[in-house]
C-alpha cells in the first residue's frame, strides 16, 4: 500500500549494467518505499530479469554507472550474501536443484546464517522443524517437501513455492520475485500469490518482475513500471497492466510520449 509517511527501502538512480561488454541496463531510476508493491513488466530482452539479478549482486553483470541505495547502505558495495543478510531477497525464475542435500537442511542453513548475521537466535533441527512447518502451511506444502533433496524432481509449481517458503523464512525487507508466475497453473499461481500476500506488510516491500498481467490479478501492485531496452519507459498504477494486457506492448511504442504525458 502507498503511504506518504513511509521511508524508502530502495533508491535506484541512473543504473547502468552490462554483460560481456554489452550494455543491458541503460539508466534505471526507481524508488521503492516500505509497504509498497511494484510490478516491473516488459517483453523478453527488455532487461527486467537483468535488473533483478543486478539488485541481488550477480557477478556476471558489471555495473557501469549509477547508484543503488538500500535503506542506509550502498548496495553496490556489498557482495550477494551481505545483501541477503541485509534483507534483500530474490526469488529465482529457475531455482537450482541440489541433489544430495535435504531441503530442510538447506532451509535451516540459510535461515540460521541470516539469523546469526542479524544477531538473532539460531534454531536447532527440532525447533526449526516446528517453525518451518508453520510457514509451509501458508503455501499448502506437503511435509515430505522437507525430506526431499532441494528442488530435485520438484514440479515448476513446487520449485516456486519453495522459493516463497524461503522468502517467508528469511523475512526480507525487499523481495524481488523474478517471473515467479512463469510455468504455474492457475491453482499454483493462486497459492503462491496468497503466500506472498501474507508475507507482505507495511514494513517490507515487493518487486514483481513479470511478463504477464495474470499474476497482478492476485498480487495487486501499487505501481506498474514498463521496461524497454534497458529503461523504465512508463510508470503507472495497476490499471497500466490491464491496458498492456489488452493493447499489447506495441501500444507503448506507438504512443510512448503521449501516454507518458497522460500518466505523469
Amino acid at each position: 500500500m502507498i503511504n506518504p509517511n513511509s521511508t524508502p527501502i530502495l533508491t535506484v538512480r541512473g543504473l547502468r549494467a552490462s554483460i560481456n561488454g554489452t550494455e543491458i541496463l541503460k539508466g534505471i531510476d526507481l524508488t521503492v518505499k516500505s509497504g509498497e508493491i511494484h510490478a516491473i513488466m516488459g517483453l523478453n530482452g527488455s532487461g527486467k530479469s537483468t535488473f533483478a539479478k543486478v539488485l541481488a549482486g550477480h557477478s556476471a553483470y558489471e555495473v557501469t554507472g549509477g547508484s543503488i541505495q538500500f535503506e542506509d547502505k550502498d548496495l553496490l558495495e556489498l557482495p550477494p550474501e551481505e545483501r541477503a543478510r541485509a534483507g534483500l531477497f530474490l526469488a529465482f525464475q529457475y531455482p537450482i536443484e541440489i541433489p544430495g542435500v535435504a531441503n530442510t537442511q538447506f532451509l535451516r542453513l540459510a535461515y540460521n546464517t541470516v539469523q546469526a548475521q542479524r544477531g538473532k537466535e539460531e534454531l536447532d533441527p527440532l525447533e526449526f522443524d516446528d517453525f518451518v512447518r508453520e510457514k509451509m502451511k501458508l503455501l499448502e506444502m506437503k511435509p515430505d517437501f522437507l525430506d526431499r533433496s532441494v528442488n530435485e524432481g520438484f514440479s515448476g509449481g513446487e520449485k516456486k513455492r519453495n522459493e516463497i517458503l524461503q522468502m517467508a523464512l528469511l523475512e526480507p525487507k525487499l523481495s524481488i520475485l523474478d517471473e515467479t508466475d512463469s510455468g504455474l497453473d492457475i491453482d499454483a499461481l493462486k497459492i503462491v500469490a496468497q503466500g506472498v500476500n501474507q508475507i507482505t506488510n507495511k514494513d517490507n516491500a515487493t518487486i514483481l518482475v513479470t511478463h504477464y498481467q495474470r499474476l497482478l490479478d492476485y498480487i495487486v501492485p501499487d505501481y506498474v513500471h514498463v521496461m524497454q531496452a534497458g529503461r523504465i519507459v512508463i510508470t503507472g498504477g495497476k490499471e497500466l497492466a490491464l491496458e498492456l494486457e489488452t493493447r499489447g506492448y506495441d501500444w507503448i511504442n506507438e504512443n510512448n510520449s503521449s501516454i507518458a504525458g497522460v500518466l505523469a
Binding site: 531477497f89 537450482i96 540459510a110 546464517t113 541470516v114 528469511l170
Partner: peptide, 13 residues
Amino acid sequence: PEEIFYLKSRGLS
C-alpha cells in the same frame, strides 16, 4: 557459478 550465486543470495558465504 549460477549454483554458487543461488546459495549466496540466501546469505551463505
